[in-house]
Computed example of a mutant assay.
Amino acid sequence: MEIRYATNPEQTKAYSTDQLRREYLMEGIMVPGEIKMVYSHVDRMITGGAVPVHQPLELEADPQEMGADYFLERREIGIINVGSRGFIIVDGEEYVLETKDCLYIGLGNREVSFRSENAEAPARFYFNSAPAHQSYPTVKIAISEAEPNHLGSISSSNERTIYKYIHPDGVQSCQLVMGMTLLKPNNMWNTMPCHTHNRRSEVYFYFDMPEDGVVFHFMGEPNETRHLVVRNEQAVISPSWSIHSGVGTSNYTFIWAMAGENQIFADMDSVPMEDLR
């Protein structure tokens, strides 16, 4: 498990491109036959990917970093399949996840494992996990059951649909909020005009991108912006003080996950366009 420590905006102002990438960009999340994880000290979020091929993969706690006997001893987790059909087994019960389906697993479940239906076209499970102090039921949310919210316009190059999976009016959790945004063809911008939310942090995972495609992910304080060049199936840590917006070389999809002070989706501080620098 890779560890990332929290940073502050004054530090970030002086970072080089390499330093920005080391602190905030998560590469190599999806590795065939492995589970990869990054533990961020920003709201204690764990971000990872599981790509089972020929054998199932078990989600296990890192005893040194987590101090737990099993992964969900003090945590909850949201998992979205961005690959072909796969299966998640939770304490002996099997859940089938098609592409873009989500599974929430609550505090206290001891055994979680992943497997693919077809090793030639494996499932690709992306997940975010946050600390939890209350247990909620394990629930599967198919993309057809998620709450859609249509936003933007082709004239602004940001026509998109937001699907909410784990949120106060949908699947209940202790503090994790999670969903997915799909940009329509010929649209490239997300979350612009931008915002911050000082009461919680966020992680973005970009996917459904062509091999030669990139997203320029903008971050930093509104008056001190920086950018990261992000490629397919890479993720970005967004601290509470940072904007999180992006523009791609083509349309793309991204998964967002939040944890922190509250779960109110609309709790954000909008940034006027004239204040951006």
Rank of each mutant, 00 (worst) to 15 (best):
T99I: 12
T99M: 15
K100M: 10
K100S: 09
K100L: 06
K100Y: 14
K100W: 15
D101M: 08
D101G: 03
D101L: 09
C102G: 09
C102T: 14
C102S: 11
C102V: 14
L103M: 09
L103N: 07
L103Q: 08
Y104P: 09
Y104A: 08
Y104N: 01
Y104D: 09
Y104C: 03
Y104M: 10
Y104E: 06
I105Y: 05
I105G: 03
I105P: 03
G106F: 08
G106T: 06
G106W: 10
L107N: 05
L107S: 03
L107P: 07
L107V: 07
G108A: 08
G108T: 07
G108L: 08
G108H: 08
N109I: 02
N109R: 13
N109Y: 08
R110D: 09
R110P: 01
R110F: 04
R110V: 13
R110C: 04
R110A: 12
E111S: 12
E111N: 12
E111Y: 13
V112N: 02
V112L: 12
S113G: 04
S113T: 10
S113N: 11
S113H: 07
F114G: 12
F114R: 08
F114N: 11
F114K: 08
F114M: 12
R115N: 11
R115C: 12
R115Y: 14
S116D: 13
S116H: 09
S116V: 05
S116Q: 15
S116E: 15
S116I: 05
S116N: 14
E117M: 14
E117L: 13
N118T: 01
N118F: 10
N118C: 05
N118W: 08
N118I: 08
N118S: 12
A119L: 00
A119P: 13
A119H: 02
A119E: 10
E120A: 08
E120W: 04
E120N: 04
E120L: 02
E120Y: 06
E120S: 14
E120D: 10
A121L: 00
A121H: 11
A121M: 02
A121Y: 01
P122T: 03
P122S: 01
A123W: 15
A123H: 13
A123S: 15
A123T: 14
A123D: 15
R124D: 04
R124W: 03
R124K: 12
F125L: 00
F125A: 03
F125V: 01
F125I: 05
Y126T: 00
Y126F: 15
Y126I: 12
Y126N: 01
F127A: 02
F127Q: 05
F127C: 07
F127S: 04
N128F: 02
N128A: 12
S129F: 02
S129P: 08
S129Q: 10
S129Y: 05
S129D: 06
S129W: 05
A130W: 07
A130P: 01
A130V: 10
A130R: 03
A130I: 09
A130N: 14
A130Q: 06
A130M: 12
P131H: 00
P131D: 00
P131L: 00
P131A: 02
P131S: 05
P131F: 03
P131K: 04
P131R: 02
P131Q: 05
A132E: 00
A132Y: 04
A132R: 07
